[in-house]
Structure formats: C-alpha cells, structure tokens
Nucleic acid binder design. Structure first.
Lengths: 110, 110
DNA sequence: ATTTTTGTTAGCAATGTGACTAACTATCTT
DNA sequence: AAGATAGTTAGTCACATTGCTAACAAAAAT
C-alpha cells in the first residue's frame, strides 16, 4: 500500500520544493538558477533537488559543470488523478444527499 | 509563502491518512470504524486523525462516547487546483515545443 | 597556469514524525 | 452498580528531515 503517492506528497509538502516545481514548470533550469531565489545554503538546497529527483518529479543531466533540471510529468498527473478521484466520490455522495433532500422537500409539498 | 498547501501535502504524505480520506470519501465514520482496517495502536491512529483535523481536511463531532468524522472539501479542492495549474503551465510549454517542432519539420519540407 | 564558477561530499545539530505502552475518563449496557 | 465500550492523555523511543559549515573536485575563463 506504499504507492508513489507517498513520496510524491512528501516531496510536495515543502514550500522550497514546490517553488522549484513552479519554476521548472516554465522550463528547464540549472541548479544555480533554481537556487538563486532561495536564502538557504547550496548543499541544503541540493538535498531538496535530490528529493525531487528521487521521487521522479524532476530529472537532471550534467553537461560540463552545469546540471540542468527538468520536470517529469507522470507523478504530478498521478497525484492529481488521485485527488480528482477522491473528489468525484464525495461529490457524488453530496449530490445524492442533495437529491434526497429534494425528495423529502417534494414529499412535504404533495 | 507557507500556504495551506504545506500542511495539506504533509498530511497526504502518509498512507494511513490517505486511506482514512478514502474511507471518509464514501461517508462519515466513527473513530473505531476508521481505525478497524489498520494494525496500529489506537493512540497512534488518533494522532493521524488529529493531523487530518488540524489541517482542516477532516472535521469531527463527539456525541456521547462516539466521535464521528467527516471530510471537508476546501483543502482537497485547493490542492487539486494547484496541481492542475502546474500541469497547465508545463503542458502549454510542451505544446509550444511541439508546435515549434512541427514548424521546423515544415521548414524542412518546403 | 591560476582563478573563478558550479556543483558535490562529509559530518554535525535541532527538530519533527510515527510508533509504542500504560493508565485514565466518560458513556452505554446489563 | 458493575462491566464493557469508545476514546483520550501522558510519557517514551527510534528514525527521518532540514538546516548548517567546511573542505573538495572539475570545468571554464583569464
């Protein structure tokens, strides 16, 4: 029962990592470009990148001394799917309750 | 920059808590009903419920000796929205790349 | 050939997380 | 009134997470 979702949500729980995702969403970037907006020390930041890469949310290749990072679609889609699925279930349930309420109202009217 | 998303994703990072959400999606349930499918000790399980409640994903009321839990829509919607937004951004980017690739192909053809 | 840039490795400290047991309270049931 | 049921509180423990600094390596620029 330990899905991909575990590590995905874990990865997204950190604001720094979400910010990296947001930045990467508009195109690939190098480590230092990604690091620039953040206050923390570079090694600390690298650990965040490692988490993203280990989860499969991000991939990177090193060319010369520059490592370029880019986003990977699959995990985001899976997680969004899970949430959408949950939402569908409880929304249909709410609809049923709503229908039930209407039926009761109609009974009153007749 | 420390949104609701922080605690939301943190809450969803645990399989036990996701299982609770899944169970709650099909209707409210008591603490022991929610606990039943899980091996862990009750106090441990209660902590998971507390996390869900603190995050606003779940709410509960106690009547007599039974505490009944039900799901709360807002945070799930917000998170799904964030993911959808991210996805839109990189999908449009991929579309652009695709269009670019086509243009290049067309240039070759002419 | 130096120096600068870009990233990496190693090791440490503080805090957070998820699990447990034991003991307890409050509410139904009998 | 006694016992069973449902949940709670308190205290402990191991491990993961997130931050740091210092020292290092490899590539590019001068």
């Amino acid at each position: 029962m330990t899905n991909q979702l575990d590590s995905f949500f874990g990865a997204m729980a950190d604001p720094t990592r979400r910010a990296v995702i947001e930045q990467l969403a508009s195109g690939p970037a190098s480590v230092s470009e990604l690091h620039a907006p953040h206050q923390m020390a570079l090694p600390t930041f690298m650990r965040h990148l490692k988490v993203l890469e280990d989860t499969g949310i991000m991939r990177s290749i090193k060319k010369g001394r520059v490592r370029t990072c880019h986003i990977e679609a699959a995990p985001l889609i899976e997680a969004q799917g899970w949430l959408a699925w949950q939402r569908e279930i409880w929304e249909s349930r709410l609809d049923n309750l709503d229908a039930l309420a209407h039926n009761i109202a109609n009974l009153k009217d007749t």
